[in-house]
Write a protein that binds this DNA or RNA. Structure first.
Lengths: 179, 179
DNA sequence: ACCTTAAAGCAAACATGTTGCGTCAAGCGT
DNA sequence: ACGCTTGACGCAACATGTTTGCTTTAAGGT
């Protein structure tokens, strides 16, 4: 049972904070459960019991970091909005830390919802953009089409073809979709 | 130095075989380095020194299993060829073992070439299909377009949106691309 | 046949992951 | 407000996995 505001919640936050701190200090590869536990002021067994293993914990933390913090910028038109969003998305996700978070998010339980959350965040952002365009009376594509035509190709390159990324790629995908 | 045909090669093959056997017998999650080493008749330290850790080893093995064994079926026309290939690809890759291999392949060294190989295999298969179509005089899209329009969306769903897959999806992607 | 050297074996030191059991505190009923 | 119930945590012993220095083996070159 997770009791919000209680000890459980404090421990969870302390552990997540410890992961973020140690990741920043010593790098992604150096993380170990005992180290994280020590920094968070808990015993390793607490972490093992709650998360199972390091992968699940990192997956948890990664998903939090992938959550967008602000709604997508409003530039006044569907194409401009989508292009700006896609460019920023590609930029953030293709950076070394961005890629690490994506990989971590994919690592958790295959049937867990972490990877799904990741996609849902993107879908939400796109939904906002499309909603605004619809209010303006512009013709809008389906969210699914944007995921297939813009998000998926960018993710595919990030994951499977490192090094083949330039900022114009995001714009090209949006243009192809809307044109 | 890797001496083909020498002891190194024998050890590598023994270890890979051990991974495949144990994976089939005891399941993906139960694999450990000492267990694999015992089955392969080598010491754990050999595996650690050659591959670094279990992830790299599994990544290696996974890439091998993802290599297509036969050229894509020839059905006499570009659209039919691509549809058949995409459908089979989706079917294989979205199965539980297929997804496990993809995840393993992605897990290796981020700057290693394992994930890239994975994409290269698909590109090769597509290249064969497009080459045959070109010989027939059909107009053919770029390999890149097929990767972006067909492979990437399928992979995206497999990785990030489990459960949203039906066989017709592959055909729809091909139709949208060629139509 | 003899060197050279990369790779493998071995074993001990080390770190990490696991588990049983006692304790603690959050939420709940009285 | 008080005590009860129950999940989560700490602790410590244990099991398992990982790393490392050194030795031995065998492939390939001379």
């Amino acid at each position: 049972m997770v009791r919000p505001g209680g000890r459980s919640a404090r421990v969870q936050e302390a552990v997540h904070a410890a992961v973020r701190e140690l990741e920043a200090e010593s790098g992604r590869e150096a993380l170990t459960v005992p180290q994280i536990a020590a920094r968070a002021g808990v015993t390793p067994s607490t972490i093992y019991r709650r998360w199972g293993d390091l992968r699940e914990l990192l997956s948890d933390v990664a998903v939090e970091r992938l959550r967008p913090e602000v709604p997508p910028e409003n530039r006044g038109g569907l194409e401009a909005d989508l292009e700006a969003w896609a460019e920023q998305f590609l930029d953030e996700m293709s950076s070394p830390p961005g890629r690490a978070y994506i990989r971590d998010a994919l690592l958790g339980d295959p049937d867990g919802s972490n990877a799904g959350q990741c996609s849902a965040y993107a879908a939400d952002q796109i939904d906002v953009i499309l909603g605004r365009a619809a209010e303006r009376g512009e013709p809008v594509p389906d969210v699914e089409r944007v995921l297939d035509g813009v998000v998926a190709p960018m993710m595919y390159r990030i994951l499977f073809r490192p090094g083949l990324l330039d900022p114009a790629y995001a714009r090209r995908l949006v243009d192809d979709l809307l044109g």
